[in-house]
Design a protein around this nucleic acid. Structure first.
Lengths: 199, 199
DNA sequence: CCATATATGTTGGATAAGCAACAGATTTGA
DNA sequence: TCAAATCTGTTGCTTATCCAACATATATGG
């Protein structure tokens, strides 16, 4: 029980070949944490609360996560990742449809998160959520860019933050209508400008 | 992982002091087994089916139960035990009220079991159910008798089977009305005959 | 203010769960 | 009928989880 934390963030969803006990324990922790998040504020949740709820030993928790903040990051990253994967039709490819899905998923995930949380949690946690969601968006973009060219780091950074910006904007004010097609056009035209043609 | 099976049947509900991993694994096995029971016949369920559903290793199953029949016995004994404990108001005492509760609980448990199962399972499993439920009823009676006198084995055997007989009879034909008070009277009078006065 | 909890991480040794491989029994189906 | 496949228990070794104990930090309250 040494290298469990090691793989936790390489790829958030590579459960293949992992010891079944590790997968079970992770799920118990995550489920217990989710239960607690709707009951009380993040700041008020102790590691002991989590392990009691998960029916695992406290030492085992620390074998999986360095602290509750790492657990939180993991939960956000994984749930967003799963939501996005479930919505993508063209798996692993750069296309206008996938860009559209990306924009909509970020917005929906963020507004869903705001809807679930207590007001206090909204204030304190939102920045962490954004950071983790962005990390995932960025990872997807890099993955999509890779077959096209290697040195597109700047483009990935720019577009990932553009997508996040749109998502944040529209998730915070639900009265606004999101003009997805216009945004997709901006992104595709922009990419076209640096020699990347979609579809 | 040697003596797990050891304590399994001493008292069906003494979870105190047992290793948490054992309790979790047991629960996973029992839950998976329950799921499978409503899907297919008991005879068609393999140990591998159970362990796959429970997400545990097959070898771990054999550390807990000698075979699927032992698991079945355990499930019956435990669920009946829990149902009865939940209904008893006068905990651990011999009284007309507890005798009444015993009669009704046996009938309800048996008819509930018949209602859940596939016709095939009803035929094949019913004898095992009766055997295990009787073992529990007998254990409760012995426990209630103990403060009164020591050599009441015959009385416990007789009354436990009388209770079972009533339960079986009325669970198999739901149209009959169970005259509980008459039966309780029979039992209390009978006990009175050997010098045991209730209430 | 200080004493008494309570929370956080960490460690070493004990124990349950995982796994692969095995032999033998039973089922399947060609 | 016979061979291939599947199921059943069992075993030795590996690995993850448990637990108790510890040092430290942060409340909590009298």
């Amino acid at each position: 029980m040494e290298m469990i934390k090691e793989n936790t963030f390489r790829h958030v969803l590579d459960d293949d070949g992992v010891d079944p006990r590790v997968l079970r324990t992770r799920k118990l922790i995550v489920d217990g944490f989710h239960e607690l998040l709707v009951e009380k504020d993040f700041q008020a949740i102790s590691v002991r609360d989590i392990t009691d709820r998960a029916t695992i030993n406290r030492a085992t928790f620390y074998a999986h996560f360095v602290d509750k903040y790492a657990l939180f990051d993991y939960v956000i990253a994984r749930s967003f990742h799963e939501l996005l994967r479930g919505r993508l039709t063209h798996r692993c490819g750069l296309s206008t449809e996938n860009l559209r899905t990306l924009l909509l998923t970020v917005r929906d995930y963020l507004s869903g998160h705001l809807a679930h949380c207590t007001p206090d949690n909204q204030q304190n946690i939102h920045p962490y959520v954004i950071r983790q969601v962005h990390a995932q968006v960025h990872e997807f973009l890099v993955h999509w860019f890779k077959p096209i060219a290697n040195d597109l780091d700047a483009a990935a950074a720019l577009i990932s933050w553009a997508v996040m910006g749109a998502g944040i904007h529209y998730s915070e004010d639900q009265t606004l209508e999101m003009d997805v097609e216009q945004m997709v056009t901006v992104l595709t035209q922009g990419l076209d400008g640096i020699g990347i043609n979609l579809d």
